[in-house]
Computed example of a mutant assay.
Amino acid sequence: MTTEGTVEAFRRAEQLVSQRRPLEALRVLEPVISEVEDKPSVQLLLGRAYFFSAQLRRAEEAFRRILEFDPSDHYARLILGRTLQRQGRYNEARAQIRLATTMQPHDPAYQEALSEINAHIATKGA
């Protein structure tokens, strides 16, 4: 695939994820992954597509890979936390979301995510 084709496929996959059509996005991403698998932006899009298609273990792998590239990526930590939360792994989720919130303290979405998981743990336990 040419660089132009890779970029075009990536952009198309972004649109599909935004439209909540993750399975189609994953199909479009297949050739992109083989070309530029180690790019954090590709892993993020891949992880989001897996997340929205409820392939949570795969999503977790993609988000953890991003954090190998850049441990300070607050959004990857947030969405990894959400992924762990959906798997019922609340203490692990809280640790990731807490880190993300520390890195991005003025974003209400991060604060809400942390409050939500803290409330769950307080009422139902981990």
Rank of each mutant, 00 (worst) to 15 (best):
A95Y: 06
L99M: 03
Q15V: 08
G81I: 08
N118P: 01
L78D: 03
E112F: 03
A126Q: 02
R64I: 06
A93E: 12
R65N: 13
E60S: 05
P22V: 06
S53D: 11
L46Y: 06
S18G: 05
A54F: 06
S72L: 15
L56W: 13
L44D: 06
A9G: 13
G88I: 08
L26E: 10
E112A: 07
E24T: 13
P31F: 11
H106V: 08
Y50V: 09
T3V: 14
D70Q: 15
V36E: 14
L78F: 06
E68I: 11
R65P: 01
R89S: 10
A126D: 03
E8H: 13
L84W: 02
V32H: 08
A122D: 05
L29W: 08
N91L: 13
S41F: 00
Y50M: 07
L16W: 11
G47E: 11
L67I: 08
A9P: 13
P31A: 12
A59W: 10
R27V: 06
L46A: 09
F51Q: 09
E24N: 07
R27E: 10
A119I: 02
A109M: 05
T2S: 12
E4R: 13
D70C: 12
A25P: 00
A49E: 10
I33K: 09
Q85D: 02
E24I: 10
Q55M: 10
L78E: 03
H74C: 11
Q43A: 15
S18C: 01
P108D: 11
A122F: 01
Q43E: 14
T6K: 08
Q15G: 14
S53G: 07
S18H: 04
G125S: 01
I97R: 03
S34P: 02
R58Q: 15
Q96G: 04
P105W: 11
L44Y: 14
L99N: 02
L99D: 00
I66P: 05
K39G: 07
L46Q: 12
T3D: 15
A119H: 01
A119P: 00
R21V: 02
Y110Q: 00
T123K: 13
T2M: 02
D107P: 05
E116N: 03
P105H: 06
